[in-house]
Design a protein around this nucleic acid. Structure first.
Lengths: 130, 130
DNA sequence: TTTTAAGTATATTTAAATGGTATACATTTA
DNA sequence: TAAATGTATACCATTTAAATATACTTAAAA
């Protein structure tokens, strides 16, 4: 029940941008966060795609937060990289569907859903403002 | 942020024992839970080792709960199979230790620890009584 | 118009975790 | 003592995660 390294990296990157509060190129971000350049680019693309980060091409190009740090939540960043926060694989309408037929099969899925909800609330209550 | 299939299997097995409330051999448990016999045995060993299930050898042997279903929590079973419930890899004194040195590195680990605590409380509040 | 930096797309590689098997052996009880 | 059952250890296969590589395109500023 861990977050992936990639998700942790994404958090570092957003945090780095939030703390410096200026446009930064991928190379600088890479050394700031300790994430390899290539992998940084990969993650940055996802963040840009979901509207958390803006990118700028050309000289003096780079990345900056697309909105105030206060409006970016930890949960948001994690879900961009990890997908929806769920505990059980059955809960949530993923591609993974439970195939069990006995009625007691999913007795605990209700619990898992509740847990996921609590986790979500907690993670969305934290933002990147210093 | 999912539980593993193995953990889900372990829950099924304990649940099956709790619902039937009698000694059951591995083969029966296997067909009851839909987990392969071999893999059931592997999981059962862990459950026996941690005192959740008792095993009996010989003819009429098999497995039964080592204590009342009410006293076995979902969290307990999950942690037996998955290890300690944590969100970040740094939090919790695992073998994995954070090597980052900048002071902002673990700004979010406090949050992760809180989340893990909430998850734990929720999972330990549910037991296997019908 | 050249340089710098990012975008896109795809593919490969490596490593770790997960899920599942196989073999050989030990114990118990009818 | 034989049949049924559990134990221990090692192994293998698959999947997922993490990281790298290649090649080409687009955009902006000096």
């Amino acid at each position: 029940m861990h977050i992936t390294l990639e998700a942790d990296y994404a958090v570092r990157i957003v945090d780095c941008l939030a703390r410096n509060n200026k446009r930064m190129d991928a190379k600088t971000l890479s050394s700031c966060t300790g994430v390899t350049l290539r992998f940084s680019l990969k993650i940055l693309r996802k963040l840009v795609g979901e509207g958390v980060v803006n990118s700028f091409k050309g000289t003096q190009g780079g990345y900056e937060l697309a909105k105030p740090a206060r409006e970016i939540s930890l949960g948001e960043v994690l879900e961009i990289v990890e997908g929806p926060i769920t505990i059980s694989r059955c809960v949530g309408s993923d591609e993974f569907q439970c195939t069990r037929t006995d009625d007691n099969a999913c007795r605990f899925n209700k619990v898992y859903a509740e847990v996921a909800q609590v986790v979500k609330e907690k993670l969305y209550s934290v933002n990147f403002e210093r």
